[in-house]
Computed example of a mutant assay.
Amino acid sequence: PDKGLPELGALLSSQKKGPWEDNEAIAKRRASREGKPLLIWFTDPRSAPGKALSEELFARAEFGAWADEKLVRLIVDANPSVETDSFAEHDNKVLRRKQEATEMKKRYKVLGHPTLLLLSPSGEVVGRYRGYKRGDADFTWGLIKQGEIASSTAYGQLRKNLEKKGYREWQDTKGRKVFAKLLNYHKGNLVLIEPDGLRSQTKEERLSSQDREWIKQQKMLRGIQ
Rank of each mutant, 00 (worst) to 15 (best):
A31F: 03
G64T: 15
F63K: 04
D22F: 04
E213S: 13
L190Q: 04
N23P: 08
D85N: 12
K98Q: 15
W214V: 07
I26T: 13
I224T: 14
V125F: 02
L119F: 03
L207D: 03
R176Q: 04
G35N: 05
D196T: 11
D91P: 07
A10V: 06
T140A: 11
V82D: 15
S86R: 10
K187D: 10
H186F: 08
L207T: 00
G112Y: 08
G64Y: 01
S200W: 00
L207M: 04
S86G: 08
R60Q: 00
L182E: 06
A61Y: 02
N184I: 00
Q201M: 10
L95I: 10
A137K: 12
E163N: 14
L12M: 06
K219I: 06
K177L: 05
E163L: 12
Q201S: 11
G112D: 06
A137L: 10
A65S: 15
L190M: 03
S47Y: 12
A31R: 00
K17V: 12
L118P: 13
D211I: 02
G135F: 11
E100A: 13
W214P: 07
T202D: 01
P114C: 01
K216I: 13
G50W: 01
W66L: 12
Q217S: 06
S32M: 06
A65V: 15
D2T: 02
N92F: 05
L53F: 07
S151N: 02
Y155S: 03
E21T: 05
